[in-house]
Amino acid sequence: MKTLLYTISFLLSFGVFAQNQDLFEKGNAFYNDGKYAEAIDNYQAILETGQQSADLYFNLANANYKLNNIAPSIYYYEKALQLEPNDNDIKNNLAYAKNMTIDAIDVIPETGLAKLIHNFTDKMTFDGWAITSVVFVFCFVILFLVYYFSYSTGIKRLTFVGSFVVLALVCITLSLAFHKFNLDKKDNPAIVFVQESKVRSTPNPKSEEAFRLHEGTKVQVLETYNDWQKIKLTDGKTGWVISDDIKMLNEL
């Protein structure tokens, strides 16, 4: 019975994959013909099946960019960048899309050691650092075994020093993995999806207006209260917006 269920499940998943591949190719064909709205419909149909990939988000962003859909293009470039953080094509196109936004918000720069650690941590994902750490653990075990069973003084000395170096690298990569995990946990970005959003000082439509934001601007969500989200900008300003005004990047 279990074998039959696994077989049916496999065939269904294979069928969905084939269907999505067909939709992706049709979307690409529409895009190449300049039919960007039709391309978006095909890409969105793939997303509705639960499948996601950097290529899918990238193409979806490109099609929205061609139609001057500011918020969706930035949103999907950001989604693609989450999956492929070192992809230069995504970064370049995202920069072009951001040029269409109205809000010019300063960035409070990190300095010194904090900036160095942050930049180095972002070189890889949490999974990347964790896998690197496991590889170093494996190397440490090999070096230790060679040291333990070797009769050569030279080899013992070399593997002894090497094992300590690799052990240090294990500690460093593990620390970077946990640091990346904590950074990702605190990172809760969203994109403004309305033409103009009034940011309030408190989660109340009658409260004082702090400032206004426009479509495509990226914010950090700090907390939620009923239908309101407390946001923070890169310049340090905070305020409350209606939840419907923004779209969370960490959600499908």
Rank of each mutant, 00 (worst) to 15 (best):
N28L: 09
N59H: 10
P189S: 08
E209S: 13
L143P: 05
S207N: 04
N182K: 15
A45R: 12
K26L: 12
Y65V: 06
L23P: 05
K247N: 07
L174N: 07
L174S: 08
D245E: 11
S163V: 09
D41M: 06
D87P: 06
A95Q: 08
V135A: 07
F181L: 15
I131G: 00
N69P: 08
A177R: 05
Y77S: 05
E223V: 03
E251K: 09
L11T: 06
D245Y: 06
N92C: 03
I105G: 02
F144M: 09
E110R: 09
G50H: 07
T202G: 04
N92H: 14
D235Q: 02
L145Q: 11
V192H: 04
Y6P: 03
I191W: 07
T121H: 04
L174Q: 10
L176E: 00
N119D: 13
D122F: 14
L145P: 06
D33N: 14
A54C: 09
N69G: 06
S175D: 09
K26S: 13
L113F: 13
F17A: 15
V107Q: 14
L5T: 15
S207D: 02
P203Y: 01
S243D: 14
V170G: 02
L67C: 04
Q82E: 14
I40C: 01
D55H: 02
L158A: 15
L11F: 05
T173R: 09
T49H: 02
L145G: 10
L158K: 04
Q82V: 10
N226H: 01
L94P: 07
Y57C: 00
N250K: 10
L5M: 11
D122V: 10
F140E: 12
E215P: 00
D22E: 15
Y6H: 14
C139K: 11
F164S: 09
I70H: 04
A63M: 07
L183T: 13
P72L: 05
P203M: 03
L67S: 01
N250F: 08
Y77H: 08
N92M: 11
V141I: 13
E48L: 10
T159G: 01
